[in-house]
């Protein structure tokens, strides 16, 4: 991909909340993924936000082998 790869963004607003997926961003490296995520998804008062390259998410159930529901 010309501008980098897809990073998934996880965040939470309170300590008792779990980290939840809030969106994604395309960036050329991890630092820019974090910088972009922080500036683009800054509407809520997050106490924690993390980004991870989509390719680093380990498939447990893979879309390619999942049967569509009838």
């Amino acid at each position: 991909m010309k501008f980098g790869e897809i990073y998934e963004i996880f965040a939470r607003q309170r300590r008792v909340d779990p980290l939840q997926h809030i969106g994604s961003v395309v960036a050329p490296n991890e630092d820019l993924a974090a910088a972009y995520a922080r500036s683009i998804y800054n509407e809520e008062p997050w106490i924690e936000m993390r980004v991870v390259a989509r390719r680093h998410l380990i498939p447990a159930i893979d879309l390619a082998t999942t049967r569509s529901p009838a």
Binding site: P28, N29, E30, D31, A34, A35, R38, S39
Partner: peptide, 13 residues
């Protein structure tokens, strides 16, 4: 810290 992350990301790119 966020500014330095941005700086580092662009510099390396």
């Amino acid at each position: 810290r966020f500014h330095q992350q941005h700086a580092r990301g662009w510099l390396l790119r």
